[in-house]
Write a protein that binds this DNA or RNA. Structure first.
Length: 579
RNA sequence: CGGGCUGUGGCGCAGUUUGGUAGCGCGCUUGAAUGGGGUUCAAGAGGCCCCGCGUUCGAAUCGCGGCAGCCCGACCA
């Protein structure tokens, strides 16, 4: 590719809206261009890199016996109505009507279409197990796209779906896929960790997310350094608080003019936040639900959503509280008949100070089981750094990460709803057990940009670099141009991916662009180098350049690129079989 | 959907407080010099000042109403 003809230029001044380094590079290097919020054009270089990522995905998915297929971007709403997601999913699902007025969706994920396909094609246990995958456009009408390609509304996703007869088979394949996922990210140069996660709208029982750790990540994670527990904030469990066996004391109403509706507020009545019962009122599907937790702890609303089976919960407004007969700041489950969710921290702590549902009054010595009760005791604590690990009790450490992929055990969530059955050995109809596996292609690209750069620009990992060699002339002498032209022709003909800077610009501009665009190898042709019948070779990311004899230069380049690939395998030794 | 901010040549911004012929830098075009880390000089092109309605002799500037974008939260590859 000749830079003089390539559309998508480099820019010196970048929009103030770029928040992360990766986003700035995305714009500075012309990798992608924003059309609308969360909707991007990939420029030539960005698209080349995307294709390389897709190729890695294909190789690894084929490596775990995947079959590539392709499903349409749009689907009839009827399929989504069958699984209940037509109504369960909010406005991030883009809906439209065709000319006949039929409801349609733009697929934000493909479980429905896939399961519909399966129920017509799969009938016998002998066909199982298998995995189908595609690399295809998804559209999610995200409320808030972010940081360039990290969160977009339209994006490419590799989504795979496996089907099994037994749980054991599912579990075994899940592990294989987990390994394949590490290979994908590692081959793209990314160090990732897998964490337990929430299944969200996908349903099912177990899932893991693959996270690239970085302070600019959107997800909050917890790690235990002593037992390797790792989980998304959304699902991090809290080790139960110690049982306090103090005998229950008598209920006693006391006047407390101050309100205590804010956690951690200065203690009064001589008690600390730990000795308070915090009561929150949430609205779910139009109904008010009470939630109680020990005063020093916070509620994790994702956990609560899961328990309530509603992802649109919210705190009740002051008006709603009033309408329900509550007094803001003095909320309490005592004497109330609303549905009540109780955190274990409350059942283990006797004699808590509760609100009195009465302006200006609290109640001393409230006890779960005696003064109020509920069958719904669930962990709803928002874990914070330093809390004990649920497995071993060591303090948890927090970090942030970009989610680049995830894997789910869906179970029979879709096969039952959509009647995707197979006949087993005994001739009985049985729903297939399914797993699904997603990777965001653009998100890998933008994560690479976040991970591989220096002050001068991008430093592409060789495996996903748009081009491998950046060839540039310095100076305008005829012999320099002639030599570069010839090399460009020869190398390109030989299959080497060359980006050729043939522009008549000052050396400073060209060298700075070479750094910014960040191809793994830079080759300079100049009068100075030709004086010794050589070129100048520099590896992006290394400071020193070296002399490269003109004769046999092509072979040296191949050799260097091979070494760069080997460095990745050296870092992740288990990948070595790939070369 | 809540909270904050911003819309002015392709990009980055000033001008808006106090209404009076639309500016700067980068980039772009032409010419000349230069040629190893964003070079210099000269001459140019390019703007429904986000949109609509209003106030006014006169609106980028004031008022009202929209729309779009960004950031912080609730959602996700």
């Amino acid at each position: 590719m000749r830079l003089s003809k390539m559309i998508g230029r480099t820019v010196r001044e970048i929009p103030a809206e770029a928040e992360t380094e990766g986003h700035r590079l995305l714009i500075r290097a012309g990798i992608a261009h924003r059309v609308a919020s969360g909707i991007y054009v990939y420029g030539h270089l960005g698209w080349r890199s995307v294709q390389k990522i897709m190729q890695i995905l294909r190789e690894e998915m084929d490596g775990v016996d995947g079959q590539e297929i392709n499903m349409p971007v749009t689907a009839p709403a009827d399929l989504w109505k069958e699984t209940g997601r037509w109504s369960a999913v909010g406005s991030e699902l883009a809906r439209w009507k065709d000319r006949w007025g039929r409801d349609m969706v733009l697929a934000m994920t493909h479980e429905e279409t896939l399961t519909d396909y399966l129920r017509s094609e799969v009938y016998s246990y002998k066909q199982l197990p298998f995995m189908l995958y595609q690399i295809q456009t998804k559209f999610r009408d995200e409320p808030r796209p972010r940081a360039g390609l990290i969160r977009t509304r339209e994006f490419y996703m590799k989504d795979g779906y496996s089907c099994h007869l037994t749980e054991e088979c599912m579990d075994t394949y899940y592990e294989r896929m987990a390994d394949a996922y590490y290979r994908v990210f590692n081959r793209a140069g990314l160090d990732v960790v897998s964490v337990s996660s929430d299944n969200g709208m996908f349903g099912g029982k177990e899932s893991h997310e693959y996270m690239y750790l970085t302070p600019v990540g959107e997800d909050k994670l917890f790690f235990c350094d002593s037992c390797r527990y790792a989980a998304n904030y959304e699902v991090t469990e809290r080790q139960p608080v110690n049982q306090d066996n103090t005998p229950p004391a008598t209920l006693q109403e006391v006047a407390t003019p101050e309100r205590l509706d804010i956690p951690g507020q200065a203690a009064f009545l001589g008690v600390t936040p730990k000795e308070f019962l915090k009561t929150l009122a949430y609205i779910t599907r139009g109904h008010l639900v009470l939630v109680v937790i020990r005063g020093d702890l916070m509620v994790n609303e994702v956990k609560l959503s899961r328990i309530l089976g509603d992802d649109a919960i919210r705190l009740a407004t002051p008006e709603e509280l009033q309408a329900g007969g509550f007094v803001e700041g003095f909320l309490s489950p005592l004497g109330r008949s609303e549905r009540l969710i109780v955190d274990p921290s409350v059942t283990r702590s006797p004699n808590l100070v509760a609100g009195a549902n009465k302006e200006g009054y609290h109640v001393m010595n409230s006890n779960f089981g005696r003064d109020y009760t509920s069958a719904e005791v669930y962990d709803i604590v928002a874990v914070v750094a330093g809390d004990p690990c649920p497995l071993c009790g060591a303090p948890l450490r927090d970090a942030r990460g970009i989610e680049v992929g995830n894997i789910f055990k869906l179970g029979t969530r879709y096969s039952v709803n959509m009647n995707a059955l197979v006949q087993n050995e005994n001739g009985e109809q049985q729903p297939m057990i399914m797993g699904c596996y997603g990777i965001g292609v653009g998100r890998i690209l933008s994560t690479v940009l976040e991970a591989y750069n220096d002050k001068d620009g991008i430093i592409w990992p060789v495996t996903v670099a748009p081009y491998l060699v950046h060839l540039t002339t310095l100076g305008v002498e005829e012999e320099v141009i002639a030599c570069a032209e010839q090399l460009y022709q020869e190398w390109t003909k030989a299959g080497l991916e060359v980006l050729y800077d043939d522009r008549d610009l000052r050396p400073g501009v060209k060298l700075n662009d070479a750094d910014l665009l960040g191809m793994p190898l830079r080759v300079v042709v100049s009068r100075r180098s030709l004086a010794t019948q050589s070129l100048e070779l520099k590896e992006r990311g290394l400071s020193a350049a070296e002399s490269l004899p003109l004769a046999g230069s092509q072979a040296v380049l191949y050799q260097r690129l091979e070494e760069l690939r080997r460095q990745i395998y050296l870092k992740y030794p288990y990948l070595s079989h790939l070369s």
